[in-house]
Amino acid sequence: MSFAILASTTGRILRQLRHDRRSIGLLIGAPVLLMTLLYFMFEDGGMFDDVVVIVLGIFPFLLMFLVTSIAMLRERTSGTLERLFTTPVGKLDLLFAYGLAFGLAAAVQATVGATVAYVFLDLDTVGSPWFVVLIAVANGLLGVGLGLLCSAFARTEFQAVQFLPVVVIPQILLCGLFVPRDQMAGWLEGVSNVLPLSHGVEALQEVGLHEDPTGVMWRGLGIVVGAVVLALALAAGTLRRRTP
């Protein structure tokens, strides 16, 4: 690991992102638009707060997974990854740079999303908005980590996108957004319990209901961060300096 290489690689990835205006629009604008849609959908019901606080965690997860897996796949298929491996760049330099760059993007995304939700869409949580943003960023990083890992198992961008219904959507279905987890059949709740997003969502729900951070919230955040570290470590294992 080299700090200088980590910093310049992070900068390079952010510059690539900056040149891609449409991706920025997707990352920042799409969650805002979709939350606004929810606002009008739930105009008469009291469900809005419960749903949006969860959605603030799901969008960063989904979008960061999408963007990161494609970005890393491009690095692998364009020959630049092989070239980087002939330079002093280390595997961890590269993976942490992706984590940092897209983590930063996730932070901007979560901040904008939460600001819009609280200021314009009248989102109300018992706990602090700062915890909502913090947990949303952690969920975004979970998307980054899993995206980096999954890109290793795809040969084309087409294949990378196909991980969405396999890796991402089941986590969204089982995270407690549609059916509370304790009301699921026992085996489904068991599956839900081992999926990291469920714990990220649980942490957000805790902020929605309690004024002070609860043990369950910290546990959920801890599990998500642990899953990010695990995913990055596994992704590092898939990077090979020498290839056939």
């Binding site: 290489i5 690689t9 390079r12 891609d20 364009s78 630049t80 330079t87 002093p88």
Partner: peptide, 20 residues
């Protein structure tokens, strides 16, 4: 050629220079 097509020439060369 293995450079980043979504960066400018200068950004590419400066990046590879920075690695050294």
């Amino acid at each position: 050629p293995s450079v980043y097509t979504d960066l400018t020439v200068r950004e590419n060369v400066r990046y590879f220079a920075s690695l050294h």
